[in-house]
Simulated assay, not measured.
Amino acid sequence: MPTNAKERLLIAAERLFYEDGIRAVGVERILAESEVGRASFYRHFPSKDDLVVEMLRRRDTNWRAWLTRTVDSSTLDPEQLPLALFDGLAERFEAADFRGCAFINTMIEEADRSSPAHQVAAEHKEKVIAYLDRLLVDGGYRDHATLARQFALLADGAIVTALREGGTEAAPRARAVASALLRAAEREP
């Protein structure tokens, strides 16, 4: 475990919030799990809400770095590269600790759109859409912005379906739909 108190708090919070939910996990449990004292907690985070926001920002950075690595390591041709998202999701769905999407889960728990946690979760989704859009632009697709949002919708649906079904099959099913969208899409000459 890291010696830095802030780091220990973030690690513990990320795991606990993902496993059990933001509202179900109190500050006392985070303190016990991280082995950080109350005074140190409040020195780093004025409130639990501030911890949630910073944890989500950190998870966003890590998740998007994972997505970039997944795409960069793919052997798909540039026009098919956006499909690597679904290949990566299939791997994530296999994890024993898979509990869905931390950002979707946050938006469900913090349904008020003005909530800082909800806003950070929504920003994550927009950043993923922007990344998919860049891949689609590089692939030469004319209506790349619409396709990027459709791919995000398929990915979110696959995540929720994988959680509901308890398997990995949602990823290849979503990939098949995404592949059909690409085949039907117009490309730049």
Rank of each mutant, 00 (worst) to 15 (best):
M1N: 14
M1Y: 03
P2Q: 14
T3M: 14
T3S: 13
K6Q: 14
K6E: 04
R8E: 08
R8V: 14
R8N: 08
L10N: 10
I11M: 10
A12N: 02
A12D: 04
A12V: 02
E14P: 03
E14K: 07
R15T: 13
R15C: 02
F17D: 00
Y18Q: 00
Y18C: 01
D20P: 08
I22H: 09
I22A: 00
R23N: 10
R23L: 10
A24K: 05
A24D: 09
R29E: 14
R29V: 11
I30W: 00
A32H: 09
S34H: 01
E35A: 05
V36L: 04
G37C: 10
R38T: 13
A39D: 15
F41I: 06
Y42D: 14
R43G: 07
H44A: 14
H44D: 04
F45N: 00
P46W: 01
K48E: 07
D49M: 10
L51N: 02
M55D: 06
R57L: 13
R57E: 15
R57K: 13
R57H: 15
R57V: 12
T61I: 08
T61H: 04
N62D: 13
W63K: 13
A65K: 03
W66L: 11
L67M: 10
T68A: 07
R69S: 15
T70L: 11
V71A: 06
D72Q: 14
D72H: 09
S73F: 01
S73P: 02
S74F: 10
T75E: 11
T75H: 15
D77Q: 13
D77P: 12
P78G: 08
P82K: 02
L83H: 06
L89K: 02
A90V: 11
A90N: 13
R92W: 01
F93A: 05
E94R: 14
A95K: 03
F98V: 01
F98A: 06
G100W: 11
C101A: 11
A102H: 05
A102N: 01
I108N: 00
I108E: 03
I108P: 00
A111K: 06
D112W: 01
R113Q: 14
R113L: 12
S114C: 05
S115W: 09
P116T: 10
A117I: 09
A117Y: 05
H118E: 07
H118M: 12
Q119I: 15
Q119W: 07
E123K: 09
K125M: 13
K125I: 12
K125Q: 15
K127Q: 14
K127C: 08
I129W: 03
A130I: 09
Y131N: 09
L132C: 04
L135W: 01
L136R: 04
L136D: 02
G140I: 07
G140K: 07
Y141F: 09
Y141D: 11
Y141R: 05
R142W: 00
R142L: 14
D143I: 04
D143W: 06
H144Q: 05
A148L: 03
R149H: 05
Q150T: 11
F151S: 07
F151T: 00
A152D: 09
L153R: 07
G157Q: 04
I159W: 01
R164M: 13
G166P: 03
G166M: 05
G167Y: 10
P172F: 11
P172H: 10
R173A: 15
A174H: 01
V177E: 13
V177W: 00
A180N: 06
L182T: 00
R183C: 08
A184D: 15
P189L: 12
